[in-house]
Amino acid sequence: MIAALLAGPAGAEVLRVATWSAELSRKGPGLLWRDIESGKDKQIAAAIEVITATAPDILLITGFDWDFEGRALAAFEARLAAAGQGYPYRFAPPTNAGLATGLDLDGNGRLGEGRDAQGYGRFTGQGGMALLSRLPIETERARDFSTLAWRDLPGALIEGAGLSPEARAVQRLSTVAHWDLPLRRADGSALHLLAFAATPPVFDGPEDRNGRRNHDEAAFWRLYLDGRLGEAPPAPPFVVLGDANLDPADGEGRPEALTALLADPRLQDPRPASAGGAAAADPGQKGDPALDTADYPDPPGNLRVDYVLPSAGLRIEGAGVYWPAPGAPGAAAAETASRHRLVWVDLAFP
């Protein structure tokens, strides 16, 4: 839908930018590709339905298994193209998901487990992330911050995280990745996508290793925009998007960095909402359930964990979470595809 089809000044370019934690991950390498190629997997069919129903121009998929030759992503895009929703440009380099360290990072006395990888994963690439785009991706200008050591982030909360000196020396900040990806718009200018997927702030102990890391993965973006990471920040327009794995009001975690990001004057929070999220409200929920993006059992209950935050100068034409009300068209596909719901924002460029 790269066209000026929505309300706005004549000649405006409107792009739908989306993020989705599709949970397209399997228990071993190559199994996702096998399931996509088979054409029989119900989850994958539902994922195709969700994406074709929302028709994003730019889609960050988190929770997607990486493989060396990119076969799974190519096969998935081919399925989308066959359904009328093709993406000529893809970006999916290796990430920290499942990247072995050779160390006992979690300190349980055993090596080679999922929690001993840079980002949780039982094999290299399990639960990685990928970008699908109808706009050219300027890969030669892309910045990948996945190798940044956690201890090197200004103000990092790594102290007290229970890591051994050996683990502290190698532990990277990014659970999956932090990317700055310039996309080339029709007029030749760039739209920067600031993409990430953070660790859940749970599955640890009183040292709160994952809670601290999750906080710092969100804090990264304000430091980057401040120019404090040794790289000049991107000029607007840009969009911060991905799976922060944290709700600012409900569930566990340290919400301070995320709350600061949502309130940053350089960004806008379109507060995408859905009828399905509102209908699935949990008792005692503090945040607006219509904004939730993940359908978890209680506890922790439904949460808002996935975000699309455009830079302040962009005009927002619409936004939503693809979570149809019970019984509405698409509701079954959304539920079958993932516990997370696709989040989209329509942006107008004069």
Rank of each mutant, 00 (worst) to 15 (best):
A161R: 06
D152T: 11
F238Y: 15
P299N: 07
L5I: 15
R266V: 12
A244K: 04
S338F: 03
R71N: 04
E256S: 12
L262S: 05
S311D: 07
G313K: 03
A100T: 03
V14K: 11
D346G: 05
P310G: 11
A186Q: 14
D57Y: 09
T336K: 05
R254Y: 10
A81N: 10
A45N: 02
F123C: 07
Q268D: 08
R184S: 14
T101W: 04
D243T: 12
E159T: 15
L6R: 15
P56Y: 08
V202E: 02
R122P: 05
E207Q: 14
R228T: 05
L99G: 00
A72W: 01
W221H: 11
G70H: 05
L6A: 14
H178I: 06
L267N: 14
R26I: 06
P324L: 07
A279L: 00
R115Q: 03
L15G: 03
R213I: 13
P233A: 02
P9V: 15
R110W: 11
L241E: 02
R141M: 12
D116I: 09
A169S: 13
D292M: 04
F196T: 15
S274H: 06
P88H: 03
V17H: 05
A280T: 03
R79D: 02
G11D: 13
A161N: 06
A72H: 00
A83D: 08
D282Y: 07
V345W: 01
G320F: 03
G276F: 09
R315M: 09
P94D: 00
W33N: 12
Q126L: 06
R90D: 07
W66F: 03
T259C: 09
V321E: 04
E166I: 02
A74M: 09
V239A: 08
H215F: 12
A312H: 12
F196S: 13
F76N: 05
N96G: 08
A81D: 09
N245E: 11
A10T: 12
R90K: 08
L131K: 04
I58G: 00
P9Q: 15
P9S: 15
A195M: 14
H215I: 11
E69Y: 09
V14A: 13
A18Q: 12
G162C: 10
E49L: 06
P234G: 10
L258E: 00
L291N: 01
H215D: 06
A332V: 00
L157K: 15
R71D: 04
T139P: 08
A195V: 15
G8E: 15
L105V: 03
A260G: 13
S338R: 10
L193F: 09
